[in-house]
């Protein structure tokens, strides 16, 4: 075997091993205040109750609901498969590792969106990604999903469709105690939301 190859392969292994022994990089990634401010004023962090309901019904594997209210409140009422991290525990290490696990889409919620907004800022500064806030919190959830209000007779078809979806969702979450004139199941079956990256797929 050529001696040059042995030298080259040695260099390759050394380079790779060098990665392991390098002193740890300064990882305290404090977010640039400007970046943070820019992100805070963006409305894109909000997801609507309808979107969340749809994701829960479809069992979106990436969705993770995070309840930031106190543990007592969480015991009383919580959304399907939500996990509880009260606001004051959010900056602790185990909360952080639990939330970064699996790179899921985290949706924070509280009774309204004040506390969850605070949670969002904390999470943002911790460097978490794919984090969202449930717009209007549980209050809006009750108003729109659990007890949806029928639109006026003159409302557009889109509004009626939305109402039908909400009725179906309401039945899904409450176990079908509300009387509905249309078959709700047909409305609940919604086509799976395509990944935003879909167009990038393929090789």
């Amino acid at each position: 075997m050529n001696k040059n190859y042995i030298i080259l392969m040695g260099i390759l292994i050394l380079l790779a091993a060098g990665l392991l022994v390098l002193p740890l990089k300064n990882n305290s990634k404090q977010l640039d205040p400007e970046v943070l401010m820019w992100d805070i004023v963006q409305p894109t962090r909000y997801v609507s109750t309808d979107e969340v309901a749809k994701m829960i019904i479809e069992h979106d594997p990436l969705l993770m609901m995070v309840d930031v209210r106190s543990a007592e409140d969480f015991q009383l009422f919580s959304l399907t498969n939500a996990i509880n991290f009260p606001l004051d525990s959010l900056a602790l290490d185990d909360a952080r590792s639990a939330l970064t696990f699996n790179k899921r889409n985290l949706v924070f919620y509280s009774n309204d969106d004040l506390k969850s907004d605070q949670a969002w800022v904390i999470a943002k500064r911790l460097g978490l990604k794919n984090i969202y806030v449930l717009k209007g919190g549980l209050n809006r959830w009750i108003q729109t999903i659990i007890q949806p209000e029928a639109p006026a007779e003159t409302a557009s078809e889109a509004e009626f469709n939305l109402y039908a979806f909400r009725q179906g969702a309401s039945q899904y979450f409450t176990g079908g105690s509300i009387s509905i004139d249309k078959s709700p199941q047909a409305e609940v079956v919604v086509s799976r939301k395509k990944k935003a990256k879909a167009a990038e797929g393929g090789c």
Binding site: M9, L12, I13, A16, L19, L20, L62, N102, K103, R104
Partner: peptide, 26 residues
């Protein structure tokens, strides 16, 4: 499984994955 990396899957750092890969390659 989302955008999971090799290191995350096996619970080791990706630097170690790189080293293992180099050794396997050689």
């Amino acid at each position: 499984m989302g955008s999971i990396t090799i290191g995350e899957f096996f619970g080791i750092s990706n630097n170690l994955v790189t080293l293992i890969f180099v050794v396997i390659a050689v």
